[in-house]
Simulated scan of single mutants.
Amino acid sequence: MLFNTYVFQVGLIAILLGRFRTLLMLSALYLTLSIILHSWLMNLRWLNTNRFVWTDGLQVLFVIQRTASVLYYYFYKRTAEYLGDPRLYEDSPWLREAFARVRQ
């Protein structure tokens, strides 16, 4: 959706990256934590298929990943709401002012 905005098409990518920096960083963190958690879990279950395996380290990682997921989904919804702002899809005084600041 970021690529469809007028701000992106004009070339003010830095403005979009500044506004959505938290979501982008949190998305990368959440993806990394999810991959690590599921890889570790599958590795433990692959080695011991006859019993349930759950270590203390796995539980800590699970809690951290689930906490990051709450933050991720909050910022994801907030970003989706912000992308509905019509100022991002048309020329406006706010955009001209931002463009003037970037050029200086």
Rank of each mutant, 00 (worst) to 15 (best):
F99W: 13
W40N: 15
T32I: 11
G84W: 05
S92Y: 00
Q59H: 15
I36A: 08
L2H: 07
H38A: 05
V70L: 14
S69V: 01
M1A: 08
S34W: 11
R103S: 09
L24Q: 04
G18K: 13
R96P: 05
Y76H: 13
A68H: 04
T55P: 00
L37V: 02
A28W: 03
Y74W: 15
A68E: 03
G18D: 07
L88P: 05
G84S: 14
V63K: 11
N4L: 12
S39Q: 08
R96G: 07
L33C: 04
W94M: 09
V70Q: 06
Q9F: 00
L17E: 01
Y82G: 03
T49I: 10
R45N: 10
E81F: 14
L41I: 10
K77T: 09
Y30I: 05
F52C: 10
M1V: 15
I15E: 07
R21N: 07
A100N: 06
S39N: 08
L26S: 04
A80C: 11
Y30G: 00
D85V: 10
G11A: 10
R101F: 04
F99D: 15
N50V: 12
R66C: 08
V70P: 04
Y73F: 12
L88N: 05
W54F: 13
Q9E: 07
N43G: 08
G57R: 10
L44H: 06
T67Y: 12
W54G: 07
V60W: 15
L47D: 15
V10D: 05
Y82D: 15
L47W: 14
L71V: 01
R21G: 05
R21S: 09
Y82R: 09
E81S: 13
F8R: 11
W40D: 13
F75T: 14
A14Q: 08
Q104T: 07
Y89D: 07
E97Y: 04
A98F: 03
Y30K: 00
Q65I: 03
Y30P: 00
F20K: 02
S92L: 02
P93A: 01
L58G: 11
I15V: 11
V70D: 09
V63D: 14
I64T: 08
I64M: 11
D85W: 02
F20M: 02
Q9G: 02
E97N: 08
R96Y: 00
L44M: 14
L26A: 08
L83E: 01
P86I: 12
Y30R: 00
I35C: 08
E81L: 14
F3A: 14
W46T: 13
G57S: 11
E90K: 15
K77G: 05
Q59S: 14
R51W: 11
L23D: 06
T67R: 12
T49H: 10
Q104I: 10
W94F: 08
R87S: 05
F8Y: 14
S92N: 07
Y72F: 15
L44A: 12
L71E: 09
F99N: 12
A14M: 04
T67E: 09
L12P: 00
W94K: 08
F3K: 15
L58R: 12
I64G: 03
V70G: 09
Q65A: 12
R96S: 10
Q59K: 14
I15Y: 04
S27T: 05
W54E: 06
T79P: 05
Y72E: 03
D91E: 13
A68V: 12
S69L: 13
Y73K: 03
